[in-house]
Design a protein around this nucleic acid. Sequence first.
DNA 1: CGATGGATATCGCAC
DNA 2: GTGCGATGTCCATCG
Lengths: 244, 244
Amino acid sequence: MTIADGDSATLHRPDPETARDRVAAAVAAENLVTVFGRCTVEYEGRAASTLGPGDRLVVLKPDGTALVHTDEGQKPVNWQPPGCTHEASVADGEFRILSRRASPEERLVVAFERVEQLSTFDVTDRNDLALQGTEEDLRQRVLDDPDLVEAGFRPLATERETPAGAVDIYGKDRDGATVVVELKRKRVGPDAAGQLSRYVEALDRELHADAEIRGFLVAPSVTERARELLAEKGLEFVSLGPPE
Amino acid sequence: MTIADGDSATLHRPDPETARDRVAAAVAAENLVTVFGRCTVEYEGRAASTLGPGDRLVVLKPDGTALVHTDEGQKPVNWQPPGCTHEASVADGEFRILSRRASPEERLVVAFERVEQLSTFDVTDRNDLALQGTEEDLRQRVLDDPDLVEAGFRPLATERETPAGAVDIYGKDRDGATVVVELKRKRVGPDAAGQLSRYVEALDRELHADAEIRGFLVAPSVTERARELLAEKGLEFVSLGPPE
DNA sequence: CGATGGATATCGCAC
DNA sequence: GTGCGATGTCCATCG
């Protein structure tokens, strides 16, 4: 059974050969494909996994993405990233989807005992997502009002390169001492303190050995472990949360 | 138009009221819901975003997950994690889905200009994913053959607690010196070297100051920056990739 | 291509 | 609930 028009088409309980032909055509036409049914899944690549029979929703995107969703969780239980090639086939009387990635070599096989529904959609989406509350927003706030870090702070560069990586904000304090600012949009753990410490140490080596270098971690809050690590390394913390 | 049986039901271009009623019933029945159509999306919570009109696939799971997928990318363009409540409504003549999270407060609103297809599925899946090639597998390999780290290495504990966190493997070398092993299943960067360094320093403080403590990073490979950091801290690296 | 670090990360576990 | 670390993390950016 089929419902179709220019934008979508749906098969209800297609036989394996029909499912194969429809998916093959949809992949060739760069349509979005959804398949719901009872299936097993095997993956082999960076890791390997097997998944016994169950009802799942499989999504194939025109960009080469494959997703296998169960009834639980935000993350797909199995997947392939964009850029993969999708093939449909029938083997042992079962409809199968094979998704392959070239580098690194990865294979995903979904074998359907039963296909409950198979849909294809002609999809185009040119609207971009506008996101607020990011680290970039936080950086802009600090650049607009450097006193938020410390009275007299003067930013001189963003993304300044060091041997340990790029520093979020680089500048001078009121006394001319070098300042390194690491921004985090949410509560931070020991990793952020370690990251800031590496930047300070890298600049310590790069600049004159007698130059004072101060490291600031700017975030809404820190964990206790991170606070200890900052104190130990002589780094400073500035609490700055999202606006409002 | 409707196709239905015990396991699934599909509406093709339903009007807003019909879509609302069907989604409300499916959410109450803890069914999986997919909606494809032209919609706008607004999100507000940990961050905030708006997304203009476009064709997207929306998935509502019985565990309270919501996903909004475009034609590109593995990750949903917008989403809500498990545990949210989903509501269907009609406002300004449009079918809308509202997904709410209590803590932290987060809202996702999908407003459909047009619903191309709406499907509901009665989904059961009690099979768990069996994954190989994880860090746990690597740990088992090292415990089975500690000489992989170094001839004479004797593991004494896993997940041994330190003030800086739990050490993957703790033990002694052939001369009785304390050994800390950090395992990584893939190529590592500076963060892993920093992590191992924190463990070694924490044990250095906890144990006698004169006790020698050796830190091993076991991973398939390291980046150049991580290698430098390891050398600087006097830590050792053992190359151990996935089997075959 | 690899390296680096962010993310509404998600997820699981320990406390 | 928070804290912490793993993830087939994904993803953009940069060299």
